[in-house]
Design a protein around this nucleic acid. Sequence first.
DNA 1: ACCTGAACACCGTTCAAGT
DNA 2: ACCTGAACACCGTTCAAGT
Lengths: 223, 223
Amino acid sequence: MARPAKFSRERLQLAALKLVDRDGLGGLTMRSLAAELGTGAMTLYNHVAHREDLEVLVVEAVLGEAKWPRVAHDDWRDDLRAVATSGWRAVRAHPHAIPLILTRRSQSPAMLELAERLLAPLARSGRSGQALLDSFRAVTAFVMGFAQAELAGPLTTQAGETPRAIIRRFRRLPKDRYPHLIEIAGAASKSRAEREFHAGLEMLLHGLASKQVRAKERGAENR
Amino acid sequence: MARPAKFSRERLQLAALKLVDRDGLGGLTMRSLAAELGTGAMTLYNHVAHREDLEVLVVEAVLGEAKWPRVAHDDWRDDLRAVATSGWRAVRAHPHAIPLILTRRSQSPAMLELAERLLAPLARSGRSGQALLDSFRAVTAFVMGFAQAELAGPLTTQAGETPRAIIRRFRRLPKDRYPHLIEIAGAASKSRAEREFHAGLEMLLHGLASKQVRAKERGAENR
DNA sequence: ACCTGAACACCGTTCAAGT
DNA sequence: ACCTGAACACCGTTCAAGT
């Protein structure tokens, strides 16, 4: 006879995210999630087909938490800034989950919604077709790459490391080979990700805006 | 009595990369690498401390293959473009390894060298301290994010999928919810990553250059 | 100093059985 | 239709032993 499913998708999402937040990616297994839900491992196969699907659940949970801003300001750049920042913050709120978000090929609604929300202001800037695609790729790469680079780039601040310790770590490198890297280690130890993200986003916005201007000028010439 | 190590680091790197290229990330295990080298799993522990170190080997192998361009053109932007493109191409040559490169917190010389090579032209643009850091973060995020987004973004072309099939896949989405996404699916099916990368890089370079100009103007005012 | 097999505690998943 | 335990083929790693 038919019975209602034992766990809702949302319940699975939240439990999976909880494990990842607490124990890292390695802490999410069929068995650990089942235990978290108070059941046996095999029960999960009634809700997901493979272990990989657990990771899709996590991605959905993280992006589902995004607080989307009210948009449609006068300037499309204000909208793009707001959406990109919201997306970045949502991703960044769950550091352990970031590799999954970057890696899963899933077309979950939450992922598609982020994409569509980024596209809207770019379309408003006058782009379509290939130009719209190019600008979308650039913004996506920047937002996702920034979230990940914070955790694992060559200049990452390691867990619980003091500013002093970061500088010391870089000073140990050969100075003739990595002069600039050593130089910015000082700045990195005092810098906050929020400011760096906005500085980078402004650069990209500037490039986007000037491309738009030139495209419109060309349009005027052709008229 | 002392003996020479059975395998050179380079030998380990190449074997590990070979497995990842052929079988994906899941194909790289202590046992599979040992088998590839014709020995037992435990022998590897004489060369690496943990399974995670195998992934560092792969990262080193990929970045070690980068063909660095001759730099020091008149314009720092030419240098930055050349280095960023070289780094991106090196990473992209081994798609399966990309998540590792984005994820490993290793300070391997190859990773540090990429960073230093990106920093040199940015420093030549007149930046130092925090401004140098900000520009470095932006470029790194873009390059790494772009490499990854190609594999796993919302608009990825799936393995062996024809342009037609991509468009069809997106047309199945609700048109009122994802109008722009559906629109650019057409462009994406005809687009090549190399062109998209350069388009995005030009946008970023434009933003970087205009920031530099404004900084210099402020410098002149303060004199 | 370096190499190696047996053994242990995990893991995802198949299978067969339950309601 | 959904739930579940036993069992299997893996995995990283400890340990103890070899040269």
